[in-house]
Amino acid sequence: MTSPQPIVVFGTGGLAKEVTWLLEDTEETSFSIEAYVDLNPVAPTFLGRPVVSEETYLRDLRIQCPEAILAIGDPTAKRHLATKLTGHGVVFPSITHRTASVNKTVTVGSGTVICRDVIFTRDISVGQQVYFNFRCSLAHDVTIGDYVVVNPHACVSGMVEIGDDCVIGAGSVIRQGIKIGEGSTVGLGAVVFSDVPPGVTVVGNPARPMWRKES
């Protein structure tokens, strides 16, 4: 058996706890968390492992530990950090929990995380740095852009298109063939029956616009 690959986790918040659980909740993990990286560390350790600054990681740890997972929920902040780290040679593996059901026709970009009991049927395309929380599902011919967050129990029907930097709320349902514009948010438990323009937050059943991001 090969030794686990060392990896660092960027972030020390709730999502970092979820990512740690994902990496540890396996019979034979492929990764070993060496440290957590925080832009402004406030404690020397997190979940029993050292916390280092971004500067310290890039200077002292990157060469021996070039792989990282970004446990950051905000798509804009995550995109900015990923772009910066890529320029320093940091690599972002995709990670899939052993209980997820992902058809062989599914394509997944770098840095994407697929949590426990997620279901992907077939002919699905997923971009980079997407986070799928536990027990969400994607049906056939779905396309998802980069830096998207899909929260627990979200149900995405067939032929849906979700643009970059979107957040799909827990327990939401998106009808077949719907397009979710770039930078939009589907609220908690929303039921989406019509297309969502870019930068819009929709809530309710049926989902209606709540507000639009400033351009």
Score class of each variant (00 low, 15 high):
T86E: 13
I162V: 12
V113E: 07
Q128C: 07
F132Y: 12
S30F: 08
G171Q: 06
R116A: 13
K104P: 15
T76L: 15
A170T: 14
G73M: 07
L22P: 05
L81C: 09
R116P: 04
E214R: 14
T29W: 04
Y147R: 01
E214K: 14
S137Q: 15
D164M: 08
V19M: 10
G13R: 10
G13K: 09
I180W: 00
C115M: 15
A68T: 02
G127W: 01
V118I: 10
E24P: 04
V156C: 08
K78W: 08
V167A: 10
C166I: 07
V102T: 15
S125T: 15
G11L: 05
P197R: 08
S94V: 00
S101K: 13
V108C: 07
G187I: 03
R122Y: 15
G127F: 06
A35E: 04
E67P: 00
M159F: 13
L81G: 03
V192Q: 00
P75H: 11
Y147C: 01
I178L: 00
Q129E: 12
P44C: 05
D38E: 14
H97I: 06
T45M: 09
I178H: 00
V130N: 11
S110E: 14
T143G: 05
T201S: 04
K84A: 09
S101Q: 15
G127L: 03
